[in-house]
Write a protein that binds this DNA or RNA. Structure first.
Lengths: 221, 221
DNA sequence: ACCTGAACACCGTTCAAGT
DNA sequence: ACCTGAACACCGTTCAAGT
């Protein structure tokens, strides 16, 4: 879309992001992003080391959007709830890009900031450094998974194609032998669709928080 | 490695699996798998619809290895523990292939069998069909994530390169400003290494089970 | 400093052809 | 029935060159 003389790193990242959002991660191509800027593929290499550098920047842009709530006096798990919810809010507009985050929580400043905050709250909860590290990774990665696997999300963001793919998937489950897969057939609809994304994510956060508090010798407030 | 006259579907899948295990998911290529069998790339299309069909078969082979424990009289969550542990055992030898499973739990017979069993136990726990479907997806996908993001696993399976990458990653965390990221720096080691994979997965399963039991109006036994 | 052009070694997949 | 060969439209990336 943009067509100008001097290439701008931020706009290249924005273009890459819009490609991921619209067509998925595999559609992001050095050549494609270059073409949208009416520029030779090689022009991108002035702004990024390589394709991975471009993807790093895409991930970092999502992490930049995480609004870190200031620390306060509420119990740690209430603050953790806010933190996790904020992380979710940053990811949800870009579900196709979420796989990038699994490996990149510790590579950029924003990812480090999110992790730092998570570790701090878990330390406040009384966890050891080792416990905290494990629970922090688990919680953040599980949240990524929640967005990645939200029922009814199928890579394609085109609403018509998405809807069609959904109906096809559900139809296939309904043709299964009910004697062999009774529960799968009965659950065909909830397995392929999500009535309320809001409620889905709320329950997801609560489930992760429960897993966090249920284990270990944590105490505090 | 194999070199014979008639191509065999199972051996093609085995070759693809060995490529994923040794070099990662992106290294799996129609041309590469064909070459290992001294055959033209197009020969594979007699056995699979396309590359995605080959990857479906790789995923299904992992799911085939899940040993489903027979139903018994123990409390549902004890049986669920066995089921989840069995799923983990099937995935752990093939960590590089785990991303394939996110989208494929309902595409093949083995995946359907695992899901069916999970749904059955959650129904036994007193969950509604909707609750059960959501918790089943969450549990299975979180398990996949546990393997995908095991600290110290870095795509490359070559032990020397892997060790080097690990040390580099940890070193980078240790050069961070301790005033800005005190907890990250303090947790550099547990964030990049896993002292005991066995214990890591045990705690992971327990955390998922806790998240399952903690929510909802479930009862039973 | 920033972009171009041509080239290289790869991809997945089609189509028509061989045996 | 099963595999080949040539071709097409793509990839990421290198290198030398332009301005």
């Amino acid at each position: 879309m943009p067509a100008q003389k001097r290439l701008n790193r931020d706009e290249l990242v924005a273009t890459a992001m819009s490609v991921v959002d619209a067509e998925g991660l595999e559609a992001v191509t050095v050549r494609r992003v270059a073409q949208r800027h009416d520029v030779t593929p090689m022009a991108l290499y002035r702004h990024f080391d390589d394709k991975d550098g471009l993807l790093d920047a895409v991930a970092e842009r999502i992490l930049d959007d995480v609004r870190l709530p200031p620390a306060d006096d509420r119990p740690w798990h209430v603050q953790m709830d806010d933190l996790l919810t904020g992380f979710l809010a940053a990811m949800r507009p870009h579900p196709n890009a979420t796989p990038l985050l699994f490996d990149r929580m510790l590579t950029g400043e924003s990812g480090l900031a999110v992790t730092e905050r998570t570790l701090a709250l878990l330390a406040e909860a009384g966890m050891s450094v080792e416990e905290g590290a494990e629970h922090a990774c688990k919680a953040l990665n599980f949240l990524v998974t929640l967005v990645l696997t939200e029922p009814g999300r199928d890579g394609d963001t085109d609403p018509a194609a998405r809807d069609e793919a959904l109906r096809a998937k559900r139809a296939r489950l309904l043709t299964l032998d009910p004697a062999r897969y009774p529960h799968v057939v009965a659950a065909a609809e909830p397995l392929t669709d999500c009535p309320s994304a809001e409620a889905y994510y709320r329950r997801g956060v609560e489930s992760i928080l429960t897993g966090m508090r249920g284990t270990g010798a944590s105490a505090a407030v």
